[in-house]
Design a protein around this nucleic acid. Structure first.
Lengths: 334, 334
DNA sequence: CTGAAAGCGCTTACAG
DNA sequence: CTGAAAGCGCTTACAG
């Protein structure tokens, strides 16, 4: 609790005060089991008296461990990734690892410089939500010793590790579901992202295979706003035959469609059914409740962290790809 | 584009290849204006050939600049802070500064260890959204050379710098607004956070001053879910006299109340009016649109970053506190 | 505009 | 269980 402002205490000052070597103080922080209880107590006291906070820049340089994980997502707001990021930050926090948040937006150039920023800080791991096509960047990542974990999707050729689920399978499941419920004219509202398009493709293929009538569809610019649904819905009303179920690329899109439909006097699901994606909290709380796809974002975070830990321990990782699956939750809206 | 996996290239390898000293390569990255064009070109080529990515752990240690800003917020999901975080990450990105995201939740212990984590990484600045009471922690921050910026609120005694607005003034403005609209029985739905309570206090004081009838109220546990509104609304219906306007601590709470009210056959605002807070995108897009308080989260981010920059340049900062204000946006819901 | 060299504050084999 | 010392990869006065 001493120290003049500006200069922070160093490890050797703690060591001097505790009457031990710097090596021992370092061990006290990084490998406490090996230091004797009495020694630890002296160090603890010295740390408290001096108000010592270790310099992890120096520590990271020396140990080659930054205790920093980079999480690169497209957006934060209205984003389904928020859940995974939140889970990741919370879980990593308990091990003293911190998350560097990178927002890639839709520009590839940003993804590139964010990856370099993460590499420059010697991030222990880089979590990627986007799909990285650039061969040069993939090579840069592979040559680095950093653990790279692609989450959310399930690339057939991962850069390093991957934790996610098959978006195509989601589309297939939704097709089967709406078919089994007897809907005849699905309309797809697909955000302009690669993953949403995979789901769309799966749905259309399965729907056609089941002998369904042609599907109508519309794109919605990502990131999706609650209100993107309005313009989309106006178009839908003019369609002939009018769709009897609208499959939305996100829950907030679904919610927007429902609010619009209901404010036009239509009943959900009787006049028009709606399916969402993501099982955000509002899906269960909207009236009527929203039929959607549940993805366990916290589990994705857990599996990713478990993989990092194995890597850090130098263990061999058998499954480079982990499928966490998903669940279709049938509620009132469809 | 060479290098075996595992070991990354060093600055001296670039220097050797370019035929210059390490000092010059370092200047090329950090102070490019001082290196001759021809020299710069040689270095650029060497960097590309080797695929060099600087080690910012070493750079930060040597220069005492981490290029890391810590942003500590309570939550990400359903959070009004997301907007500010997003703006901050985006703006800092252009200057090569990265954001460490800390989630403080509601436990003070987490705030403490997150502050220490930020200090340990020698963050160039620490952005705090919560209110920090702990004297010891305040002292630790003040003794450090880190710039501390409290955002969102406007403490009368800032640790260092503050950028935000008066939550009490928000309450006062809402009281005046609902009074001017002729509402008689406001009901307050207040999330259990310090800031929401300041707004509540301001509203109640002003309402009383204007001679209004006693206000009814209820607390809602933070973080507020879209559906927290349901239970709250059930209680409201039993109130006598029944409130004619519900002042909600957030837009999603307002939205939840509206959905509930409408599903009970009540008309908004005729049977019951609703006021939100935050002007999230859904406020303008809900039907009816939501009367709310707009806060310019991006501006908060901008002002905070401007302050950091002044600090970094060693300039004197005249205003330790910046009030960015807020606006009441009257829409259809009240 | 450029270079030689000291220094930033830790960690970690190695030896005991 | 502990210590002496080399080393991690940069930056930056200082001198030219």
């Amino acid at each position: 609790m001493t120290n003049s402002p500006g200069r922070s205490a160093r490890l050797d000052e703690v060591a001097a005060r505790a009457g031990v070597s710097t090596a021992t103080v370092s061990r006290f922080f990084n490998n406490p089991d090996v230091v004797a209880a009495a020694t630890a107590e002296k160090i603890r006291a010295a740390v408290a008296e001096i108000g010592y906070v270790p310099n992890l820049l120096a520590g990271g340089l020396a140990s080659n461990r930054s205790r920093l994980v980079a999480a690169l997502v497209p957006h934060l707001s209205n984003s389904i990734f928020g859940q995974t990021i939140e889970a990741m930050v919370e879980q990593l926090y308990t091990e003293g690892i911190v998350v560097m948040l990178g927002l890639t937006g839709t520009a590839d150039i940003r993804l590139e410089s964010l990856i370099k920023a993460a590499l420059a800080r010697r991030a222990d791991a880089i979590i990627l939500t986007g799909i990285l096509e650039d061969e040069e960047l993939r090579g840069l990542l592979q040559r680095s010793s950093t653990t790279v974990i692609e989450i959310w999707g399930l690339p057939e050729n991962p850069i390093d590790l991957a934790v996610g689920f098959s978006h195509r399978a989601v589309g297939v499941d939704i097709a089967r579901f709406i078919h089994s419920r007897g809907y005849l004219h699905p309309h797809l509202l697909t955000p302009s992202t690669a993953r949403a398009r995979e789901r769309r493709d799966g749905l259309i293929a399965e729907w056609a295979a089941a002998g369904g009538a042609p599907v109508t569809e519309d794109d919605v610019e990502a990131p999706v706003h609650f209100g993107s649904a309005r313009a989309a819905f106006a178009k839908i009303r003019r369609l002939d035959p009018r769709p009897d179920v609208i499959v939305c690329g996100s829950d907030s899109l679904a919610q927007g469609v429902m609010v619009e439909a209901m404010s036009c006097g239509l009943k959900v699901p009787d006049d028009i059914a709606v399916v969402g994606f993501g099982n955000s909290s509002l899906a269960g709380e909207m009236r009527p409740t929203i039929t959607t796809i549940d993805v366990d974002g916290a589990r994705i975070a857990r599996e990713a962290i478990a993989a990092m830990r194995q890597r850090a321990l130098g263990e061999d990782i058998k499954n480079r790809t982990i499928d966490v699956g998903f669940r279709l939750i049938a509620r009132d809206s469809a």
